[in-house]
Computed example of a mutant assay.
Amino acid sequence: MKQVDVAVIGGGQSGLAAGHSLRARGLAPVVLEASGQAAGSWPRYYDSLTLFSPAGYSSLPGMPFDGNPDRYPHRDEVVAYLLRYAEHLDADIRTGTRVLEVRADNGGFRLGLEGGEQLSARAVVAASGTFGRPHRPELPGLNGFACTVLHAADYRSPEPFEGQRVVVVGAGNSAVQIAAELGERARVTLASRHPVRFARQRMLGRDLHWWLARTGLDTLPVGRFLRTPPSQLVIDNGRYRAAVEAGAPDRRPMFAGIDGAKVTWADGSTEEVDTIVLATGYRPDLGYLAGLGALDSHGHPRHQEGTSLTHPGLAYVGLEWQRSLSSNSLRGVGRDAARITRRLAAHLASI
């Protein structure tokens, strides 16, 4: 059984940032990516996805995003950037390698891989993100809906929904973007428990992320005080607010029930619906840690700013609100990776 310094689980933005920081500390990480390329979940996002942060604020450590720093890169540009980053990263990256379980083993860890291979690691960084675990909330009557229900993780483009009656559940960036895109081809309602909260993408000629960086709000360690992340702001250049105000999509409170294909709204009215799209976010995809005792009863890691509270050689990168509001973003994972690798290096030096 091969032994390595640090096994990094996940080869997307978080795993690549962790690999970079570990190499900077003189450690030799092995990055284990389940898919066939080191781009994480980005290739599987919906076709029209465009970053709401400019290229100048969307880089991993050591390699700036190419091109005009003020532009907003498309999904495929992010994929190409991550593949270039992986190519230049001085680390052992193994694609097509899925980790099934992690167990404590003689002061370190033993990883069980798909196919039966075992790997021994002195430390582990869990950087597998959330995309593999879409959140499907309990909504009244949803389980009995007679037509199509899909999560935003399975949505690609609006063409298959031409002329349909569609309800998009959610009030965050993905929910509003998908609903507005569908609203050009279908009759769409955006249903949520809370109103949509818009934030202006540019103020006084500067992008919102410039202001976040200049004021220090982007790096403020608010994660240590939050038990539940606050409701998300929809970053908007005016397009999405205008679409909602024009009724394409219209916005309503969450439906009160479902009977077959009929949805009952809060005001008592009913109508038939063809498709419900759940843009309801994700939860940490960390099932491989279940046998280690590192997770709580809801599958969330027990950690403090990315450092495990149960195992000193275990750390996390890419959790939502891990430390700051940018912790699970391209611009934020590098900072968090640097913090946790510093602590891991100290731990490994002490044993």
Results as ranks from 00 to 15, higher is better:
348 L>K: 01
60 L>K: 00
313 G>H: 05
237 N>Y: 10
238 G>R: 07
11 G>K: 00
223 G>V: 15
119 L>D: 03
213 A>V: 04
157 S>M: 07
264 T>L: 12
28 A>C: 13
227 R>I: 13
23 R>C: 12
296 D>L: 09
32 L>Y: 01
260 G>S: 11
297 S>Y: 09
33 E>Q: 07
234 V>A: 08
151 H>M: 06
29 P>I: 13
280 T>C: 04
293 G>S: 10
321 W>K: 06
30 V>Q: 01
52 F>A: 01
223 G>H: 06
323 R>G: 12
343 R>E: 09
221 P>M: 10
136 R>Q: 03
259 D>F: 09
260 G>H: 07
251 R>Q: 14
74 H>N: 09
165 R>G: 09
26 G>R: 02
252 R>E: 14
307 T>N: 07
293 G>I: 13
250 D>R: 13
97 T>E: 02
172 G>K: 06
94 R>Y: 08
253 P>A: 08
340 I>D: 07
230 P>Y: 12
233 L>W: 09
210 W>C: 04
193 R>M: 12
106 N>L: 14
178 I>V: 14
78 V>L: 15
263 V>A: 02
36 G>A: 04
85 Y>T: 05
319 L>R: 09
342 R>F: 06
286 L>T: 08
50 T>A: 15
90 D>Y: 13
91 A>L: 02
332 G>D: 13
91 A>T: 02
331 R>F: 08
43 P>K: 05
121 A>G: 09
131 F>R: 04
5 D>S: 04
65 F>C: 01
252 R>M: 03
3 Q>A: 13
95 T>G: 04
309 L>V: 07
213 A>K: 00
231 S>C: 06
215 T>N: 00
203 M>F: 15
65 F>E: 11
153 A>S: 14
292 L>K: 00
299 G>W: 02
96 G>R: 02
250 D>N: 06
65 F>Q: 02
102 V>W: 05
94 R>V: 05
43 P>S: 10
277 V>Y: 11
303 H>N: 05
61 P>M: 07
183 G>I: 07
17 A>C: 10
309 L>K: 03
47 D>K: 12
185 R>D: 01
99 V>R: 00
86 A>V: 03
316 Y>H: 06
335 R>S: 11
207 D>A: 10
287 G>R: 02
73 P>S: 04
178 I>R: 01
225 F>P: 06
84 R>A: 14
157 S>W: 07
276 I>M: 10
231 S>K: 15
314 L>I: 00
92 D>K: 00
155 Y>S: 01
312 P>M: 04
251 R>I: 11
104 A>Q: 02
200 R>F: 09
45 Y>S: 06
222 V>F: 15
15 G>C: 03
51 L>S: 05
256 A>W: 06
183 G>T: 10
